[in-house]
């Protein structure tokens, strides 16, 4: 790989711009896609969409297409104890984490080093963050004032994973409140609650693990997800 290609790849990553590194396997020649009019464009778009590297044949040549997508985002609402356990685990999975909590005593950089803290109210914060199909939203506060507006915005978005901490009873009353806001059953079924895979989690790190296990299962289309 030439220093120019490496630098261009790093710049795209820094700018959170999705790119595909194409390598002609016979020679090692490399291109950074998209390039307008390239015969590789269609295959490159597919690689990005699926987020899967692949070898393709184009014009009797084998090319390896390696997508470099910006990281998946995880929006965590509630700078609580479980979030403290969840954030570093999620970062280790290569996920970009944003923690929303307007309560200053919770959302401190001492409790959450090396993560983006957003002190806005969840509805304003979510409106600004604009969750898309590469975003997951998890609410952890148990407080309707904070969780509900975040879930309302998440349901109006294409977020691929929406999880909400709380017992079955808490979750049932939460769904009733969201229904009153105009969300139908199909929409409400997108919310994972009680959140996480059932692994009998007890401690905060265990609960964080169960939530992230479910997040991975959904992201990777696991049968159990």
């Amino acid at each position: 790989m030439t220093p120019e290609t490496l630098a261009a790849l790093a710049a795209a990553r820094e700018a959170k711009r999705p790119v595909v590194l194409a390598t002609r396997l016979a020679t090692g020649e490399q291109l950074l896609l998209p390039i307008e009019g390239s015969p590789l464009t269609e295959a490159a778009d597919r690689a990005l969409l699926r987020d899967e590297a692949a070898t393709v044949s184009v014009g009797n040549e084998e090319w390896f297409l390696h997508p470099y997508s910006p990281p998946v985002r995880l929006i965590v609402v509630g700078a609580v104890h479980i979030a403290q356990a969840l954030v570093p685990m999620a970062a280790h999975l290569g996920v970009e984490v944003i923690v929303i909590d307007p309560r200053r005593s919770f959302a401190t950089s001492e409790r959450f080093p090396n993560v983006t803290l957003n002190g806005e109210w969840p509805d304003d914060a979510m409106d600004a963050l604009r969750p898309d199909s590469r975003t997951a939203v998890i609410t952890l506060t148990h407080d309707p004032k904070l969780d509900d507006p975040a879930l309302d915005r998440a349901l109006k978005s294409d977020a691929f994973y929406i999880g909400s901490l709380g017992s079955r009873k808490t979750h049932a009353s939460r769904l009733a409140r969201l229904r009153a806001l105009g969300h139908d059953d199909a929409a409400l079924s997108r919310i994972r609650g009680p959140v996480g895979l059932n692994i009998g989690a007890v401690t905060a790190p265990e609960i964080a693990l169960s939530i992230l296990a479910e997040f991975v299962a959904v992201r990777r289309n696991a049968q159990s997800g």
Binding site: L6, A10, R13, H66, Y68, S69, P71, L93, G94, V216
Partner: peptide
């Protein structure tokens, strides 16, 4: 969820 970008970052760092 990409780990390859970080390996590339590490490789580039070693290069420097």
């Amino acid at each position: 969820m990409s780990e390859t970008a970080d390996i590339l970052t590490q490789a580039a760092h070693w290069r420097t």
